Amino acid sequence: MPQDVDFHIPLPARQSPDYARAEAEQLAWPRSLGLITSEAAAARHLRGDYAELASRFYPHATGADLDLGVDLMSWFFLFDDLFDGPRGENPRETKQLTDAVAAALDGPLPDTAPPIARGFADIWRRTTEGMTAAWCARSARHWRSYFDGYVDEARSRFLGRPYDCAAQYLAVRRQTIGVQPTVDLAERAGRFEVPHRVFDSTVLSALLQIAVDVNLLLNDIASLEKEEARGEQNNMVMILRREHGWSKGRSVAHIQDEVRARLEQYLLLESCLPKVGDIYRLGEAERHALERYREDAVRTVIRGSYDWHRSSGRYDAEFALAAGAEGYLEELGSSAR
């Protein structure tokens, strides 16, 4: 994230004490599945430091639980990079690949499944271990929404019709930012589940939407130069400029104000959680799970995203220009074409 664009995040920074070990071992999983097949690809992947991102999203996790988070973050960005080129401008090819990956939610994959799908299948298998059927169904819904969003974005590029208003863009970007599956994994990593009867409550839904919005706005600021270099038109800064005729500076300042307002609302909503427990008559264990969700899932995905964006090399100019250049990116999705 550009150092001259500051966001005040009124939440404490946290990081797993097991980060150093996870960082040293982070390439083992993508290499074992053929998701990284060259030293150039490995070096590029390490510059993103997805182990740091996972250690901030899941500061309560260590060992195999943190490794699962690291592997999910690695997978997210390997998958996302597959759509930086022509595939991301072709709705049919995008749907072929997202369908091949999403098939893992329904059962074993065929032998012809591409590496990126096999990687997701492994993550999904490990994610669901020990979780209830209701939780797995909820998480699967979030994943399907995530995959659907990629098809919507590809359709926009294919038609040459970039989103022309912030509300339209947010509706799609809230899916593809991937925050909801990320927050879901915090429950799995922490071995707890939010009481299902309160998950869709007004307060909890509003908290989660703020977490999603803050993440995508931070990401759009961080990735602006990368997307400008690539000719991408769907970034909140660009959309605000088209929608309102604002300068780049004013658009960035507006996003800073939007993040600040959302976080003020977030803190107010947090103060309502004890009342939510009363309304839904949560028992002591259920209230503890709700508190863990606030502390170890929603808060950390907001603050963790901010801290990682400021340190990661993923959004450096040279990293951006190399996106999609390595042959391994084609290999990851080639058998789904």
Score class of each variant (00 low, 15 high):
Ala13His: 12
Arg14Tyr: 10
Gln15Gly: 04
Gln15Leu: 12
Ser16Phe: 09
Ser16Ala: 10
Pro17Cys: 10
Ala20Cys: 04
Ala20Phe: 10
Arg21Trp: 06
Glu23Gln: 15
Glu23Trp: 12
Glu23Val: 01
Ala24Thr: 07
Glu25Thr: 15
Glu25Trp: 10
Gln26Glu: 14
Leu27Glu: 06
Leu27Val: 09
Ala28Val: 14
Trp29Arg: 02
Trp29His: 05
Pro30Tyr: 07
Pro30Ala: 09
Arg31Trp: 07
Ser32Pro: 04
Leu33Cys: 08
Gly34Phe: 05
Leu35His: 08
Ile36Asn: 03
Ala40Glu: 15
Ala41Ile: 02
Ala43Met: 09
His45Lys: 13
His45Glu: 11
Leu46Arg: 14
Arg47Trp: 06
Gly48Phe: 05
Ala51Arg: 01
Ala51Lys: 06
Glu52Thr: 12
Ala54His: 02
Ala54Leu: 01
Ala54Gln: 02
Ser55Arg: 03
Arg56Tyr: 09
Arg56Asp: 10
Arg56Leu: 11
Phe57Asp: 06
Phe57Ile: 05
Pro59Trp: 06
Pro59His: 08
His60Phe: 12
His60Tyr: 12
Thr62Phe: 10
Gly63Asp: 09
Ala64Val: 13
Asp65Glu: 15
Asp65His: 15
Leu66Glu: 03
Asp67Gln: 13
Gly69Asn: 07
Val70Tyr: 01
Asp71Arg: 09
Met73Ala: 15
Met73Ile: 11
Met73Phe: 15
Ser74Trp: 02
Trp75Cys: 04
Trp75Gly: 02
Leu78Ser: 04
Asp80Glu: 13
Asp81His: 05
Asp81Arg: 03
Asp81Glu: 14
Leu82Ser: 11
Asp84Cys: 14
Asp84Pro: 08
Pro86Arg: 14
Pro86Asn: 12
Pro86Tyr: 14
Asn90Glu: 10
Pro91Asp: 10
Pro91Glu: 08
Pro91Cys: 11
Glu93Lys: 15
Glu93Tyr: 13
Glu93Arg: 15
Thr94Glu: 04
Lys95His: 14
Leu97Asp: 01
Thr98Met: 03
Asp99Ile: 06
Ala100Ile: 02
Val101Met: 04
Val101Glu: 00
Ala102Asn: 06
Ala103Trp: 00
Ala103Glu: 04
Ala103Cys: 04
Leu105His: 03
Asp106Met: 06
Gly107Val: 03
Gly107Cys: 07
Pro108Ser: 02
Pro108Phe: 07
Leu109His: 01
Pro110Lys: 06
Asp111Ala: 11
Asp111Met: 00
Thr112Gln: 08
Pro114Leu: 02
Pro115Trp: 01
Ile116Asn: 00
Ala117Ser: 00
Ala117Trp: 00
Arg118Lys: 13
Gly119Phe: 00
Phe120Arg: 00
Phe120Gln: 00
